[in-house]
Design a protein around this nucleic acid. Sequence first.
DNA 1: TAGACAAGTGGACAGCCTGTCCATATAGTG
DNA 2: CACTATATGGACAGGCTGTCCACTTGTCTA
Lengths: 207, 207
Amino acid sequence: MASRGEPATERPLRVDARRNRERVLAAAREAFDRFGPQVSLAEVARRAGVGQGTLYRHFPTRADLLGAVLADRIDVLCRQGAELAATGPAGGALAGWLRLLLVHARVNQGLAGGYLSDTGLSERYPVADCHVPIMGMADRLLAEAQQAGAARMDVTSEDLVHLVVGIALATARSADVDQADRLLALALDGVRVDAVAGRSRSTEARS
Amino acid sequence: MASRGEPATERPLRVDARRNRERVLAAAREAFDRFGPQVSLAEVARRAGVGQGTLYRHFPTRADLLGAVLADRIDVLCRQGAELAATGPAGGALAGWLRLLLVHARVNQGLAGGYLSDTGLSERYPVADCHVPIMGMADRLLAEAQQAGAARMDVTSEDLVHLVVGIALATARSADVDQADRLLALALDGVRVDAVAGRSRSTEARS
DNA sequence: TAGACAAGTGGACAGCCTGTCCATATAGTG
DNA sequence: CACTATATGGACAGGCTGTCCACTTGTCTA
């Protein structure tokens, strides 16, 4: 995820360096959208009009570049969540935001997938750093929904996010554009408080 | 998926060719397990003790190789499903098999992911060929569960499979090994027939 | 069993990609 | 303006994919 908050304790980048960094970022955004997250980094450098060395100086690995591109998309998503929370009822805000999250996850499926698998397939913190703000927003919206009695108390925000991400991943290449939405609705049916009415969910369906 | 059913209309492989094919397959199985689906095909050939040309002759693309390895794992899974159907109650068979599917999807997540993304990121049939047997088994188990009154009528087998695959993908690198199971239970809560009790699921939670 | 030919093999090779290195160019500073 | 730390670009080493083809080996027929 590189430098989200710009520690600024270190001397700032030289202006030409910062300009090049932005160029690379812009080129990467466009190239990832156009050719997918597998696009050659040499190609990105070419499109940015910089040398490969410059690209690698700013983003030592492909994951760093993917992460940087993801980061501001996530910013937008979280701002939207805050707005929903401020303007609507708690249950609706949660459901609405999960829908936005679903769209985000579908659109950026490739990016995030590439990011994750480059970040290290193993031995890493379960969800990548860049998902921290997402988890924060999920925490907040779920807590509010639970307080309003609109969501089961035994559901965690991690569950919800994983469920949505999963739906996005699983349906990413489905031709049926509505399916993701239907799946989300199905899953949300299991989340709402009235769905549980005193039964001990989980394993009792085992066999 | 290459030649699952061996059309046999074409002359069979020469014995040495068949032997080499098996060797490559065995080496691939092991290498994929050990090093992940990104392992170099040259490495697979080396481990199989054949030349690269031989590997590519039998499996022209990485996806072909991944697909072949996946195919027999899927065979096993479907046989297990048939057994469950034959021995237990319909609702339990469905739930139990979905759990097996979840395990399968988690274990082979990398394989399937690699398979899908190599098969072609775009313009292809939504779910890859190799999933046809899985869908068939899901169809069957769901239909039986629905007839037994153990599953909602408005759920499709595609929904279920996607949900499970999604959970597997989303939790594949989670440190919490139980989470996938909990998510599945959560999702199944939305599937069971008593969860719906005369409400029109889906979008009414919108805002 | 021998000969002939189609089928199969292996490894060299072309082309592409990643990530490093360093001689050169340039912003920032006094 | 001069000086230095920073930044740049492109050549390069190393690795991977997928193709090609001269050579080897099953298989079939007589």
